[in-house]
Simulated scan of single mutants.
Amino acid sequence: MNKKNKLVSTLTLASLVLGVATVTQHEVKADTNGLQVASGNYIDGQRIASWQNVTTNPTVKNYLPNDGQWLVHNEAKDPQGHSYYLVGNNEYVMAKYSDLLGENSEQAIDSTVTIEYIAGYNLRIWSEPNSTQATGVVQHQQDYHAYKRRVVHGKTWYEIGANQWVNGDYAKIKIEEKRDDKNDNQQIEPEAPATNPMQLFAQQTSAKLKQDSLNSHLILQTDERYKSLPYGTGEGTIDKNGCAITSLAMVSAFFDNSIKTSPADILNWSGSRYFIDGQGTSWDIFPDFATQFGYQFHDLGNDVNNALPYLKQGIPVVISVGPGQFTGSGHLMVLSYADNNGIRLLDPNDSPDKNHSLTIYSPAEIQKDMMHIWAFTK
């Protein structure tokens, strides 16, 4: 795979032509204010209504594709207290039919879902979303009643019985009688506008990743806000030595779905006690970070295949690499996602010239320079 294969991102927008809702594709320039991205979730094959004047007298304005995505500029509530996301000029979508990237929520539903798996194979039922305890199976192309819909880090699950959850990737809503508002209103917290060129580059890159439905927040050790912070020995700084510190901040950003924990916050905890002169940051920092910040730690060794089950769920994996395509010495980064096209990563020492964070890599390319990998879960 050509590692220079940059992604071209589009968001689905709706427009009215001669009074008929039509869908067109427009390239959306990178958003520099850290706006969220919402994805539609509704009955399979049906469109989602968009609304206008929601705070006073909501009326239908348009119909948007069920699989569409929209940049979210703000939130509002109608007179009955239902939440909406502002996605255009006086155009809103109901929050209960839209999922924010990486959100966590639950809502009661009265729906029928159809299992779309693999012909001749059954799909496992789990005791809880993301559980490792299977409680049974469901059959391909069979219908089941769903009572709850839960979103965990942006991934949908349906409850079809007590302690019986199916993966929403393989369950499509066929009929829906009722759906309640979500019990966890997702607060939209845009990142403050950039104050220096490298922060701006990171925000632009993160916005492009959001357009690809990736819960990825690029943070740079070269960002002017952090680069001069002392780290290491002598005149060492985050700029020179802080790839591990910055990578851990990006792991936290994944679980927080925003940059709430900065490299400065990680450094306030770690100090320089994990730094080894002439070698860099000790790998001992990773299990200690997990303990301190409330994550489960997984040592995955040095085989990229061990990372794929995590990456395919969008769970971040920290990678140590030796000299090669990413660095002339040693470096730490975050693998952020994998699918059939390849592996995505976040490079804390990225730049407009490198653009590693907007490049797709094959597993073989990642394996070539890999020294070790670690995963974190909640």
Rank of each mutant, 00 (worst) to 15 (best):
N268A: 14
W269I: 00
W269P: 00
G271E: 00
G271W: 00
S272R: 00
R273V: 05
Y274R: 03
Y274S: 04
Y274M: 03
I276W: 05
D277P: 10
D277T: 13
Q279E: 15
Q279V: 15
Q279P: 11
G280N: 08
T281F: 00
S282L: 11
W283C: 14
W283I: 15
D284V: 04
D284T: 12
D284F: 08
I285W: 05
I285F: 01
I285A: 12
I285M: 06
F286N: 04
F286I: 02
F286S: 00
P287N: 10
D288V: 08
D288W: 06
D288R: 11
A290Y: 09
A290C: 12
T291N: 15
T291M: 13
T291I: 12
Q292N: 07
F293E: 05
Y295I: 00
Y295R: 07
Q296N: 15
Q296F: 09
Q296V: 13
H298S: 11
H298E: 10
D299T: 07
L300Q: 06
L300H: 03
G301I: 12
G301S: 08
N302Q: 13
N302Y: 10
D303C: 04
D303R: 12
V304E: 01
V304N: 10
V304L: 05
N305K: 13
N305S: 13
N305I: 06
N305G: 02
N305E: 05
N306Y: 03
N306H: 11
N306Q: 12
N306G: 02
A307Y: 05
L308T: 09
L308N: 00
L308S: 01
P309M: 06
P309K: 10
Y310C: 04
Y310N: 06
Y310H: 04
Y310M: 02
K312R: 09
K312L: 00
K312T: 13
Q313V: 03
I315R: 12
I315Y: 06
P316I: 01
P316S: 01
V317R: 02
V317W: 01
V317M: 04
V318P: 01
V318A: 12
S320N: 14
S320V: 09
V321M: 11
V321Q: 05
V321S: 11
G322R: 06
P323S: 13
Q325E: 13
F326T: 09
S329K: 10
G330D: 09
L332N: 15
M333S: 08
M333Q: 10
M333G: 07
V334W: 12
L335C: 00
S336P: 07
S336A: 15
Y337S: 05
A338I: 06
A338K: 06
D339V: 12
N341T: 15
N341P: 07
G342A: 12
G342F: 09
I343R: 05
R344D: 11
L345F: 11
L346N: 07
P348N: 08
P348R: 03
P348D: 04
P348E: 07
N349E: 14
D350K: 06
S351I: 10
S351Y: 13
P352I: 03
P352G: 02
D353S: 15
D353Y: 10
D353A: 08
K354R: 14
K354I: 01
K354M: 07
K354E: 06
N355G: 11
H356I: 03
H356Y: 12
L358W: 04
T359R: 15
Y361P: 01
P363I: 04
P363M: 01
A364N: 10
A364K: 13
